[in-house]
């Protein structure tokens, strides 16, 4: 099939049929921030951090397939400010105490806040009361940090295909819970993957915290997305 021609902020790009805007942008060395999206998982477009504008309409770049001749706006100041406000909302809706979080330095939410130079949110903090579930032998779930991206729900399955995590309740009360029976039999690899798939510190592998020293963590030196912009991203 023929390549699809499209532009991002005026830059001529080529993509393949079936690719989403995020995937095609990445292949062309353009970073579109994502949070709920994870390569290899079916995108759900729940966080809207990847919102771009095409023909005056806002759309989630992680779910929108490429269309011939698309003119994608990615870095317009109003778009970037909207993304920043989404990050701020995620910070005030949970209890994100970076200094005491094991994921600090490797956290994608924090990394986006660094990239967007988030100094203090424009919204008041809500301080919800959330639960911690440390009943699973290898994992700890901290609802304070959960951003309900559903990456764990989509990615983590037992051998027979059953989901290890699930969203319960609705609206602002939605929370992620772990199937205690399945969690009791998770392998070391599965537990590690659950922690890695979580963009924040809501799912932690027990007993291995703070393994990487400050200065060598994922986002200590370079902003999130700089690997894509340099063309070295996967």
């Amino acid at each position: 099939m023929n390549d699809i021609r499209f532009t991002i902020d005026g830059k001529e790009c080529l993509g393949k049929p079936g690719q989403t805007i995020v995937e095609a942008a990445k292949a062309n060395g353009v970073y579109i921030p994502v949070l709920c999206h994870f390569e290899g998982l079916k995108p759900v477009g729940s966080c809207r951090i990847c919102t771009v504008r095409v023909g005056g309409r806002f759309m989630a770049a992680c779910t929108q397939p490429l269309i011939e001749g698309m003119a994608v706006e990615n870095t317009a100041p109003d778009l970037e400010d909207m993304r920043k406000s989404l990050i701020e909302m995620l910070f005030v809706e949970g209890n994100h105490l970076c200094p005491s979080c094991e994921k600090s330095g490797n956290c994608e939410l924090q990394a986006l806040a660094y990239r967007y130079q988030l100094m203090a949110p424009r919204f008041p903090y809500l301080w919800p009361r959330r639960d911690i579930d440390a009943s699973a032998p290898l994992l700890m779930l901290d609802g304070n940090r959960c951003i309900q991206c559903l990456r764990c729900v989509r990615a983590c399955r037992a051998k027979d295909g059953r989901k290890v995590f699930a969203a319960v309740d609705r609206s602002h009360r939605v929370k992620i819970e772990v199937d205690k029976k399945l969690a009791a039999h998770l392998s070391e690899d599965q537990a590690r993957r659950a922690m890695d798939i979580c963009p924040v510190g809501a799912i932690l592998r027990k007993e291995t915290g703070f393994a990487v020293p400050i200065g060598r963590r994922k986002f200590d030196r370079a902003p999130i997305g700089s690997d894509v912009e340099k063309g070295t991203g996967r």
Partner: peptide, 19 residues
């Protein structure tokens, strides 16, 4: 100038905020 996490978001003392 707000200096540090506690001035900016409450920090460690704010762990009591949900209670």
């Amino acid at each position: 100038v707000s200096v540090g996490e506690c001035a900016i978001m409450g920090g460690l003392p704010a762990m009591r905020n949900g209670i």
